[in-house]
Design a protein around this nucleic acid. Structure first.
Lengths: 238, 238
DNA sequence: TTGTGTTATTTGTTATAACAAACGACAAGT
DNA sequence: ACTTGTCGTTTGTTATAACAAATAACACAA
């Protein structure tokens, strides 16, 4: 008998620490962890229903990636971004995401741009429905959709790392802000520029997008430089 | 009795996995691991005289940082850089190290530049003595000395990560090449530009330095794109 | 000789227990 | 009231053993 055409899919091997890592990543990116709070191994292990070994592995990786801070006694803390750290992150983000956008503009074909245009339409729909969480998710896919077009895996990886670092405060951008931004839609402008193969212009738009969001977040800082969640948006924190 | 002025230094807490991590980092950066070879946990554990738990931790972190590749069965492999991966790395390096240099030029004071000038002199001495390993070490300190002046910790951290990724093939730059490069000393030129607060010029010089080294390494690629160690330089590999 | 199933070995994964450092509560002394 | 020492609890670290998946070696059959 012939084994082909059986529609059997490859069985993926995914260790426990890998799944724990993914879940923590996701939660961080969605802002479901309170900045400054500590991640306790035994506590997480109980939540996941595993021993501490795999969670220790996952947390350890996050710390190694700079996504989590290490507090006293090598405990893992959800980063509580200060203004200066945020400013620094923005510098690196504009540099890397700008470059990725420029490369993307040179390599993108019409179909690529069309696919992104769909995401853009979805984003507008989500804003109108005030669905902040799904908006943020599509927003992320839009950005990374552009960066993926650059075709430079390492660059993509590092940008992902930067977003993870911003994760805990990423959800602080409230719907009001997103809506008010509609006047100057850098996303649309960047996409238009990519379609026209204008790398410089596309880069400038993405950089402007990043810097506007950064400026907004910087405006949330209190006296000590801590970026604080705006009170009008609980955002399902935990 | 007064506790001050007892000349007691702070007792550093350094877990086993941390020391293992440091040692592996160092070895990678010095090119003491053969590209493509596998790091075996129990083997390393025996070398370090510990159980596999701390080495697993250390290796796991290195993989999370992208410094080690993960092969089949989640084993850790010393990356065997292909031409394309090297090209990509160079893109990110020029972007990040270029920006860091520009920032450094704006913030450096005379004393900072003088300190770097000393390292530059040391480098020349090491070239003449054909002490490749110490040359590479000082060379690294010179570069990071510049980048540290930018005063952006996150940027520094990411650049360090990029160097770690290049680590295994970094020692492939043979003395002959380094010497032949003396005609166009980008290091000196960059430092001069920094002293003159010419950020644009300094950035260009550092970028040129990176790209020249990159082009040299790219020239070592064989038919499959693998970067191979030049036969005339065993470089104490193991 | 070639292909195939079996077995032994290697090697990463996970759970568990013992351990040690840090932290907090609390009581005693000043 | 404030400090200080002690004890119990919390929590990360390490070693160890059992486990499971992959690989290699090998024997047997076509």
């Amino acid at each position: 008998m012939n084994l082909a055409d059986q529609n059997l899919s490859r069985i993926a091997r995914e260790p426990l620490w890998d799944r724990a890592h993914s879940q923590l990543r996701e939660a961080l990116l969605a802002g479901r962890f309170e900045p400054g709070s500590a991640l306790v191994l035994r506590q997480l292990a109980e939540t996941f229903g595993t021993s501490i070994t795999p969670v220790r592995d996952a947390v350890s990786r996050l710390v190694a990636q700079g996504v989590l801070d290490q507090g006293p006694r090598n405990s893992a803390l959800v980063p509580d971004l200060k203004s200066s750290a945020l400013t620094d992150l923005m510098v690196v983000r504009t540099e890397l995401e700008g470059r990725a956008t420029r490369e993307a503009a040179m390599k993108a074909c019409a179909a690529d741009v069309d696919a992104l245009e769909v995401l853009l339409a979805d984003m507008r729909r989500m804003i109108e429905k005030r669905r902040l969480d799904t908006y943020l998710d599509i927003h992320r896919r839009f950005h990374f959709g552009i960066y993926a077009l650059a075709g430079i895996p390492i660059l993509l990886e590092m940008i992902e790392n930067l977003w993870l670092r911003c994760g805990p405060i990423l959800s602080f951008v409230v719907p009001q802000y997103v809506v008010s931004l509609k006047g100057t839609d850098h996303h649309q402008a960047a996409l238009d520029a990519i379609r026209l193969r204008d790398g410089t212009r596309a880069e400038a738009e993405i950089v402007a997008d990043i810097e506007e969001a950064g400026a907004y977040l910087l405006g949330l800082a209190d006296g000590t430089g801590r970026i604080r969640r705006p009170h009008e948006a609980p955002a399902g924190a935990r």
